[in-house]
Nucleic acid binder design. Structure first.
Length: 284
DNA sequence: CACACCACCCGCTATGTCGC
DNA sequence: GCGACATAGCGGGTGGTGTG
């Protein structure tokens, strides 16, 4: 059973898969007045759901007031901090997750490091889903990992339903260009192992390459090439934790030249592929 | 305003050359 | 044969400008 009347508790996913959307851990905390976290930088996604109380979430130079019913999203490689209110400290639940699909899904929802806070009116349903996630991960089996993956998708579906209802997603407010960018992101996440030309992709979608590049960066904050590189490197990180030759890992994520892959990996992560592997699987 | 197109620059990649 | 290095071609990013 879960420990009771604790102010802080967390369940870790004992068998995190390498899928498109992977819950890593989940927990809850009843914070003290003025309780502060950060400044810090994470290398995964972390969403907090404020069940009660209020506080301030700081990201990219902006302070966002958050209160019951709000979600605040932490993106990888972003400097963030958050603090509970003195009189009404926050009680929140959180889910840490990763996966190649995460960036695309959050983009579709209009959630980004530049717009990291959303509210949800169906509080009881959401609070129950977050609690269910924590309980499921506490199980610790491979089957629980699969169940948790399904729960995370259900949570994303709730956000999407709400975004639809508010006209924030693929309804009137979403332009043709946004839909095309969504298509490009899906292509990147599904076919990253293929050779992908940004020029031909842009023309397939009916745009000039330069205009498409500019719009892509406008909506996602990354150039198409960099976005694709991120997807490939995330996939490579997963593969490097398995006993696969680095040459094969390079080929599996769309790099014809393993030497070039190593250079890019080091530039991207600060570590060589073999160094990363040693750190993650010292026995290999 | 959305889009196309040009020019320029940068970086990747394939290929060639050279020395060992 | 192999590794190190040089180089040319190409793809991609971006600023600017023109067009409907």
């Amino acid at each position: 059973m879960l420990p009771s009347n604790a102010t802080y508790r967390v369940s870790i996913n004992a068998h995190p898969g390498s899928g498109e959307l992977v819950p890593m851990f989940s927990g809850q905390e009843r914070t003290d007045p003025n309780h502060r976290v950060g400044p810090k930088i994470l290398d995964y996604y972390l969403v907090h759901y404020v069940v009660s109380g209020q506080g301030v979430f700081h990201c990219r130079g902006t302070d966002y007031p958050v209160s019951a019913g709000d979600f605040f999203f932490i993106f990888p490689d972003e400097l963030i901090a958050y603090q509970s209110d003195e009189l009404s400290p926050m009680f929140y639940r959180w889910i840490g997750f990763k996966g190649m699909e995460a960036a695309g899904l959050l983009h579709r929802l209009g959630i980004s490091a530049a717009a990291p806070v959303v509210s949800h009116p169906r509080q009881r349903r959401m609070s129950a889903l977050f609690y269910q996630m924590e309980k499921t991960l506490y199980g610790g089996t491979v089957a629980d990992d699969m169940r948790a993956g399904g729960l995370l998708r259900t949570i994303f579906a709730q956000w999407m339903d709400q975004a639809h209802a508010e006209g924030q997603s693929s309804t009137a407010a979403e332009s043709q260009m946004e839909r095309q960018i969504g298509q490009a992101i899906r292509l990147f996440t599904l076919q990253y192992e293929q050779k992908i030309s940004i020029d031909s992709l842009a023309h397939t979608l009916g745009y000039d390459r330069t205009h498409f590049s500019k719009m892509f960066k406008h909506y996602t904050g990354l150039s198409p090439q960099n976005y694709l590189l991120n997807v490939r490197m995330e996939a490579a990180k997963q593969l490097l934790q398995k006993p696969i030759a680095i040459e094969q890992v390079a080929a599996a994520v769309g790099f014809a030249d393993p030497l070039y892959f190593s250079k890019q990996f080091k530039k991207w992560s600060g570590q060589t592929p073999s160094g990363y592997r040693r750190e993650k699987r010292p026995t290999l």
